[in-house]
Write a protein that binds this DNA or RNA. Structure first.
Lengths: 151, 151
DNA sequence: CATCAGAGTTGCATGACGCAACCTAGAGCC
DNA sequence: GGCTCTAGGTTGCGTCATGCAACTCTGATG
């Protein structure tokens, strides 16, 4: 559990960040999407401290975002794989990536292109209206607050 | 600047997380999207330590995600507003919210509904293929790695 | 003159993190 | 039977980031 929870925050964003909102977790998940599954590989690719990595992996397993399974006995060796809950973080990761591509670009250009398998098209991370299909941005969105105590 | 940077990570996700990837920053941004703009209001709503809040706001201004502007002189008082770069984090926030709604739900159900202004439709945060328009998930996406040194 | 609001700053304690060393179980080799 | 290697951690220690309360500063209000 994170040392400081956001219990006072009645918001899905806060609850999501309680699960994945520290400095390393999202990068662990990113590497998991890239197919990394073993302790040593996470550690080498990220340069994260081993104790911190062990802690993050355990937490992600507790959260149901990763599963830990032995891929061989004698000697026992483990792999960490994304669950469905973890796989559902894909849009979060892609919108982060798109934002980084646009606003914090590397000189070498976008280092990773993600494509629609088979089709070969690129990912469009824009939000859509589920009624009219138009693109939704911060400028044409509005929040409907649930009525505080009138239900 | 974050204490630990991800310099060894050639990835837009890592660069994005360098800007917004600590425990409070994304919640500050969420409140900014809700219209919060003053130091005292951020502090009261989030319960964040004042020194940490001051640090986060300064960092976000340095990053070009927020602007700081006096909304009155004598006494001088300031407001923090999202820049275009900050507004572009909207898809990140919405996909985090959708994930939280689905996988870390509050008993009271989704506490915040965001609508297409005028139309009234809800937000569809699924990723699309920019060629064929189909929905893209982790299962039908593939990464094309840039050729390492063959350019 | 006292009090209040907004926007911080300062000092101290605690907790998260980085780092290196160590541990364990089995495999391969000689 | 000993040496070394790999995978997956754990332990101990030091430092840096964070939480918390108190304080500052400026001007308004009574």
């Amino acid at each position: 559990m994170l040392p400081r929870t956001y219990d006072n925050q009645v918001c899905s964003v806060a609850r999501a960040l309680e699960a994945i909102g520290d400095r390393w977790t999202m990068l662990v998940i990113r590497d998991a999407f890239r197919g990394v599954s073993r302790f040593e590989d996470f550690q080498k690719r990220l340069g994260i401290a081993r104790n911190v990595l062990a802690d993050r992996l355990n937490r992600l397993v507790d959260e149901g975002i990763l599963t830990k399974k032995a891929y061989q006995e004698r000697p026992e060796r483990f792999e960490y794989r994304l669950t469905e809950k973890g796989l559902d973080l894909f849009p979060v990761l892609m919108s982060l990536m798109k934002w980084g591509d646009r606003h914090a670009p590397d000189e070498a250009g976008p280092p990773l292109v993600v494509l629609h398998r088979g089709c070969g098209g690129e990912i469009d991370a824009r939000l859509r209206c589920d009624r009219c299909g138009e693109s939704i941005t911060a400028l044409n969105a509005e929040a409907r607050q649930p009525v505080p105590s009138a239900g």
